[in-house]
Design a protein around this nucleic acid. Structure first.
Lengths: 144, 144
DNA sequence: ATTGTTAATGATATTCATTTTCAATTTCAT
DNA sequence: ATGAAATTGAAAATGAATATCATTAACAAT
């Protein structure tokens, strides 16, 4: 699939914030978009490094932060404490089902659960702004 | 309320693991049990330090880890990245509703949500082992 | 095309919660 | 009382993420 749109979003974001373009950032975005995974900064660093060995770790973090601000990626803070990043543009809200053995990520969705969450929040007088739901277990292959 | 039972649990745990008792650990457990809050290690350290100024940070962490293993407390990893600890013995499973402004913790329970979680896991071939659900928002006092 | 301003970079240092190390102390079965 | 081993406190180490800073690069104005 094409990633033109995402690059346009980044450009637009850079323009409105009066930032500047850079080759490194383009490379990082390119790799990020082409990888259908829930990457850690380290994962991304290692892949990008193959194409551009001079890239620095900090640039990976800085770029990921920028992409997040631009709405292109989402930071995922799961139980192991290592931040993972997933595609966000044109991806609707979802939660995760994670295999604790092989690390597999499955994106899940449940309007019913969301509804119940709203109910609980309301019952307690809260104005709900966000939530975090992660299910952990063993996937089909790992549970045997 | 009495905390005798919890102390017994700890003793039993220590005995079966062939560990040894210590005054520090008793003091830490005492403070932990008497504080009805979702404490950070730092919180606990500061309170215990008043009673026993010679106590070290590492001992707090070591004790909390031990209490967790003994089933007396539960580690809570919420969004700010700082681990919090809550009473676990004789407390049934619950999730949390957290005010992002004042930090208030409300314990919530929803068998309906749990059921839906099981359904989702099953649908994806997963054997569910645990989950994490946190709702974030503004509490009654903070939302105005 | 040449500037000047300022963002971006890469290397490195720093942060901060948590863990580990290690020598000294304490527990407790014998 | 003794000795093996757990526990302690202080300090060093860890590890992910961020900040610093000198250098490089982008780009608007000339």
């Amino acid at each position: 699939m094409s990633t033109e749109e995402e690059f346009k979003i980044l450009d637009e974001f850079i323009r409105t914030k009066n930032l500047r373009r850079s080759d490194q950032r383009q490379q990082i975005l390119d790799v990020f978009l082409k990888t259908e995974m829930h990457l850690t900064a380290e994962d991304l660093y290692n892949i990008v490094k193959k194409k551009n060995p001079s890239i620095g770790y900090a640039t990976i973090y800085r770029s990921l932060k920028l992409f997040s601000e631009a709405g292109l990626c989402r930071e995922l803070h799961v139980a192991d404490g290592i931040t993972r990043y997933e595609h966000h543009y044109n991806h609707k809200h979802h939660d995760h089902l994670i295999c604790t053995k092989c690390g597999k990520f499955v994106e899940i969705e449940s309007p019913e659960i969301e509804l119940l969450q709203e109910k609980i929040a309301k019952k307690n007088g809260f104005l709900l702004t966000k939530h975090r739901l992660e299910l952990y277990g063993l996937c089909r292959s790992c549970k045997n």
